[in-house]
Each structure stands twice: as C-alpha cells, then as structure tokens.
Write a protein that binds this DNA or RNA. Structure first.
Lengths: 209, 209
DNA sequence: AATTCCGGAGAACAGTTGTTAACTGCATGG
DNA sequence: CCATGCAGTTAACAACTGTTCTCCGGAATT
C-alpha cells in the first residue's frame, strides 16, 4: 500500500488541495489571468503569505490545475475510442462517457475550455501538451482498429486530433446545458454530437476509396 | 455617400476607436476579465473617467469588440463555403481565406478564441450569438449545393456548425504559427486542415448511403 | 531531550483599481 | 451671438493587489 507520510507533509498537501479547490471554484466566474492570490487564500481562510509555500504565482497554480484536470483522464480516453462494438455503439458510448465526465467534474472542464486559449501562457502550453498526448494516445488506439488498415501514421494522427477537438467541443456544449439544467437541451447535444461523429465515421470508412 | 457627421461626434468616435484598439492590444497578453479600465485609458492617453463616456464597463467594451471582430465577417463566410469548383478547390480556397484573415487581423482572432469560453458572460453570449448566425448562414449556403439534395434541415445545420467549429480551430492554429513566424509550421497547418476538411467532405458525400 | 526545520501568521510597503463629484472648454442649435 | 450640451479633465475616496520581512509553534531529526 501507499507510503504513510508524516502529519507535516499531510497537512501541507491538505492546504495545497484547499487552495486548488478554492481557485477552481473562483474560476467558474472569471479567467485565471484575473485570479488574485489573496482572493484564493481568503477563500481558504489562510494568510496570503501561505500561498507562497505552495505556488510561485497564480499561473503556477493554474499549471497544477491542468495536471489535476487532465492528468487523470488518460485512462478514460482509451475506453472512449476503443474499438469494441459497432460504430454506432462506439459513438453512443463515447458521448455518454463525455456527458458523465462533464457532469462529474464541471469546474475542471470549464477551466480547461476557458484556459486553453486563455491569457496565461504557461497554462496554455500545459494544456496543449496534455492534448497533444491525448492525440497520440487516441492515434495508438485507432491503430488497433481493423478500419485503420492501410492508413498512414500521419492520417491517423489527423483523425485522432479531430476526435480530441470534437471531445472538447462536446464537453463544452454539455457544460452550457448544465448551467441551465434543461434536460431536453442535453438530449439535443447528444443528438447533434452523435450525428457529427457519425459523419466523421463515414468519412473515415471511405477515406481510402 | 455617407452622412457627414459633425466634428463633435467625429472626435468621440475617434477616441472610442482608440479605446477599442488599445484594449485589443492589451488583450493579446491577458483575458478580458483582468482588463482594467484605467489600463485602457492610460494606453490611449486619456483620463480614466473619459472611459465612461463610451462604455459602461470593460465587459461592455468587450461586447463592442465582438461586433468589430465578427460583425464584418459575414460576407467572407459566404465565399468561404460557396459551392463553386471541385471539392478540393473549395477546401483549398477556404483554408486560404482563413489563413489570410488570421494574418490580417490576428488580434481580433485571438480575442474571439480567448473570450469564446472566457470569464465574462455577456461577451461569451455575444460570441455565441454571432457564431450561431454564422451557422445559419453557412447552412443556407450549403443548401444551394447540389450535394445537399435530400438532406434534412437538421442535418444541414449540423454540418454547417461542424464547419464553423473547424474554422475557429483552424484560425487558432494559424494564430499559433504567427507568433513563432515559422513558415513550415504554417504549411503543416494547411496540410492537416485540408485533410480534416477532406474527410468531412467524404463523410458528407456518403451521408445518405 | 535538545535542536533544526518549516508551514503558516502578522504587519507593513507602495502601487493599483473602479467610481463619484465638480470642473472646463468648445462644438452645437436656436 | 448667445445659451445649451457634452466629451474630456482633475482630484479624491476607500478598497484592493503582490511582495517582503519578521516572527511563532510544532513536527522532524539527531
């Protein structure tokens, strides 16, 4: 089992996590580039100077949030695009997984969507890095698919990144429906996304014609 | 010809435009939610209170920037997806038009990409509105295409919005290459985007199979 | 048991922010 | 030509920001 770390480091990680959580909450209504360090510490209930024990700056905290939001997602990616079942089954499963993830971690998804093109360069780069890794992983998964027989590596990566972008777009759409709480709007997103993915799937099947 | 407006209103619009320009420049390195009103007036060389003569807040200014960035783009949209020429020619033309627009108005493109999911709700909504209009216009253009014979209105709109999203993604990719100034990277974006659009085009041709 | 280490607190710093009020000068309309 | 309107200025406000330095208490180390 895991190494038991002293109560000292345990407390440190605890407040560190509290800072991350508070920041994530505050970021639902603003961008990272306007997030103040005092704002975060105030929300946690610690002195402003305590912030420096954990992060160099709010940008640094943002990079940590990227890890938290995307780092644990690599496992899910595989299942999302795995080659089991008919094309329609696979699409339905992918959409369902995305919807579930957005419902489970809305703040994380919002953060990524917002800061992907946001005003803080290190965070932008951290997100791009992770998304590039996602692309590679999806590509590797696609390569296993019999449908990919005869595809060049380049084309596989093109398709993989197309899928990754679609995932983000879909996640963002689900996010908007969460705020309004309208179930029928959510169904609409499912419908549209399904048809989008179906069109891409069709294009994929005839790519080598 | 246009109505000659008094030197009074002319001067007002002049400083208003100066505020918009200065804001757009400042927004290359940060998000709108962290843009201060004093920051903008300082850049223009005018008193902070002068800001209120033109905008209620920086969010208000942001909405005006959305108009400026997207309002004049509707004409270009039509040509981008017009039904003239072979599929490959149309794709090449579209990619070229996007690349040209990004090179001509990089700050506007960056602003839209950044604030589309940014921290300022009114701006987000203004962008969504414009993009929805783009979707409708693209759909109308697609409807003229013989390839769209037999397509439902719903499917046409789905495809149109897929194209709109691809445009934004492509524009954002070109933007990244502008900063680094590497021509070969720009060629790479052209290559990948072309293949993406080709795959979508193929899916489109076999949609009704 | 004595000592070092270190996460966090406290106070103070100069600088910034949005917003209000009362003003000035000049183009405008009667 | 004179009175009104209005874009822009000046001054001041309380509140906020990031950062530094000094200190404290308790866990960790020896």
């Amino acid at each position: 089992m895991s190494h038991t770390l002293g109560i000292r480091q345990a407390q440190k990680q605890k407040t560190r996590q509290a800072l991350l959580d508070a920041a994530l909450g505050l970021l639902e209504g603003q961008s990272l580039s306007s997030l103040g360090l005092r704002e975060v510490t105030r929300a946690v209930g610690v002195a402003p100077t305590a912030f420096y024990r954990h992060f160099r700056s709010t940008a640094d905290l943002g990079v940590a949030l990227v890890e938290e939001a995307l780092g644990s997602l690599h496992a899910m990616i595989r299942v999302t695009v795995s080659a089991d079942g008919t094309p329609d089954e696979r699409i339905a499963r992918a959409v369902e997984l995305i919807a579930g993830h957005v419902a489970a971690h809305p703040a994380h998804v919002r953060f990524i969507a917002r800061e992907r093109h946001g005003g803080v360069r290190p965070v932008r780069e951290a997100i791009q890095d992770q998304l590039a890794r996602f692309g590679e992983e999806v590509k590797r998964e696609l390569a296993k698919d019999p449908l990919s027989r005869g595809w060049s590596d380049d084309d596989l990566l093109m398709l993989a990144n197309l899928y990754v972008d679609q995932m983000l777009i879909t996640a963002s759409l689900f996010l908007d429906t969460l705020e309004k709480g309208a179930q029928d709007q959510r169904d609409e997103v499912v419908r549209i996304t399904t048809r989008r993915l179906r069109l891409i799937s069709i294009g994929r099947q005839h790519w080598l014609d």
